[in-house]
Write a protein that binds this DNA or RNA. Structure first.
Lengths: 212, 212, 212, 212
DNA sequence: TATGAATGAGACTTCATTCAT
DNA sequence: AATGAATGAAGTCTCATTCAT
């Protein structure tokens, strides 16, 4: 009310990022609809009105949040493109990298958001599919196909093999995000990844013992 | 106003089920917050007020929907409890049964709901964990542990092995519910299950070829 | 649902009275707007729909309740019309009678209703004024005027004298209905009436000592 | 949409008071339940939503209205505490002051609200009892007791004597609020107070003629 | 006569968005 | 660029009233 001490300072350049970060937290906590701009603004340390200087609508902000999390894709693709490295080595490298990334980026929370809001924001599901899931799966499938050709792994639809590889990790992430917070025992993702790596690589091995 | 057709008919017994069904559709489509009671009522063919004859609040209705879908657990547990059947056979039976159930029950949609709303309805996540996920995983782990003892499968943390078995199926379900509707290629779950069964069983086999 | 035991019996003649009684209880407890027909029906032991066999609307029922309580007026009027009895005796008789009536009829609760809803149901306030308050006050004023003429009491506006006589009793009733239920000490109405009778009769006496 | 006149003006400081004032009018007119926030907002010249910037719920607003009217108690207490002034003088001062206050503050309307809603808002009845009625009555009783000791008035339960003093005034207020609006003859409160003062002081006088 | 499921208008409340400052 | 008071549409929930049985 008094002149003198400004209530705010400009930090125009930093703002959008901070807002997106705050919004991410709230969206991850509540989902899109239940998230309140009031909360986001409060967490970002600005007024509700100021949000509209950077984002046109709540949906816009949500899109920004989800897109932001579209990780600059994993250079997993580059790793997988290497043909000189034996497939199992490749695979272990990739799996390890995923483990690290999940630990760092709260990828799990985003996955939950994308899954939960896919019907209300189909374009986001599409973006995630196109930019993240499909590319990762594509790179993996390609590597698997090549490995098959080289006789490193068993023949079969590489796409389905990719599901066998990635599925348990996704499940682990969802477990952590969904059930651990409500009392389920925590899961050691690193361990899961390592154990699953053993299993699935054994399963894909060309001469794997046939159980039946 | 018109003579002839009655405004409504009393259907006390059938109503709750119809409402839950309608609510399921809308919740699955929109998520909890974005679902409108108007829509649910319309789809159930009743007035908005009538919902309140059967459910106290929107949350209550949501709970009913999710609980309704807590399938009387799969008698998967009974199958897995059998010790005379070789583990691989057991596994294939269970996987096949899951495939069928997923096809029938829209289990995927519920999974999405539970995952998406777990922060807002922790009790539901808990119920699902306790009644469905944990039990299934527990039964599976037990069977795996026994199979290890009998030398049918490789040694290792049975819980993690269970993730290796179930993860890809969950991933497939999520894929179908999340990405297929926005243009991703459909996934043949039966095929996935069958292929993954081969892979993972080979991977768990005691003397599976060691790739590295 | 089953044939055999009838859910209800006809007691057509008794019903309206029972309903009014039940309605009175609920209205007295909640006021008009906050009273629910559901509660009234339940307390009357009938279905909500059945109320409409006897009363057209909720307002109708309320009117019936208040009118019902328009006590067959007090034969106070007859007592007060007597001219052969000395005024103080008359007064004590009347006051005593009021005390009894208040004890029996829950007049206080009705007074609260009439006061509280007078803006929403002006006709009821009017009825009460015309049938109860005005008549009682009128009879009292007439008796006071006559007593003045006979030199039994001090000269003055009989209407205002009537307020001096009745006011404390009304206040007592309101106290009982309003403050006692929330923890205020109970009031012995009989005692109040008796003490006030002494005071006011002394005050009205022709040669009452002048304090100033 | 039109250029020129702003849709609203910010009035943060004045608003709460204006709203309470508007709410008071509507509550006094309709009672709690029948009062509509729409009406209150309209009368306050703001939107319905703006009410919620200042009050959490309708009940909250009602409480604020009633509490607002808890007059900073009348300094009646101080007047009555004086022991050097003869009791009759004290009494006339107090009565006169009450007359003025009633004229100014619409105390009567609040009394009606408190009485009418006491069952639904017992805490308000309690507040009014504790802060207003009980204190006033207490101060009066104390003064009466002292006056008895000094032989200025007749012996007797001071509490009951206080009812004799105050009752007719309360009755007058209720009359004005309840019956005058529906056609009953208006009452001159000043006159009532003055006449009643004469009567009751005479009645309390130590040697007041005994009529019987 | 009696029921009670069903209705539908209307109330309170929330919250994304706007706009005067 | 920033604020935050104000808006207003929309949603949940209630309840007097109706009507098929």
């Amino acid at each position: 009310m008094q002149a003198g001490s400004p209530k705010w300072r400009r930090r125009a350049e930093a703002r959008p990022g901070e807002i997106v970060q705050a919004a991410f937290d709230v969206f991850a906590e509540k989902g899109f609809a239940a998230a309140k701009l009031d909360d986001i603004a409060a967490r970002a340390g600005i007024s509700k009105g100021a949000l509209y200087l950077y984002f046109e609508t709540k949906e816009d902000l949500f899109r920004a949040v989800v897109r932001e999390a579209v990780v600059p894709n994993l250079d997993m693709e580059q790793v997988l493109a290497q043909t000189t490295v034996p497939f199992p080595d490749l695979m272990r490298i990739v799996l390890a990298r995923m483990g690290q990334m999940i630990g760092k980026t709260r990828l799990g929370a985003v996955a939950k958001l994308v899954i939960g809001e896919s019907r209300n924001f189909p374009e986001l599901a599409r973006v995630w599919h196109d930019e993240v899931v499909s590319r990762a799966l594509g790179a993996l499938s390609t590597a698997l196909a090549k490995a098959q050709v080289r006789g490193e792994i068993r023949l079969g639809d590489p796409r389905l093999q990719a599901f066998s590889i990635m599925g348990p990790i996704l499940m682990g992430v969802i477990w952590q995000e969904t059930f651990t917070p409500v009392g389920a025992p925590a899961l050691d993702l690193e361990l899961l990844i390592s154990a699953h790596g053993d299993t699935v690589l054994a399963g894909l091995a060309p001469r794997a013992g046939v159980l039946k």
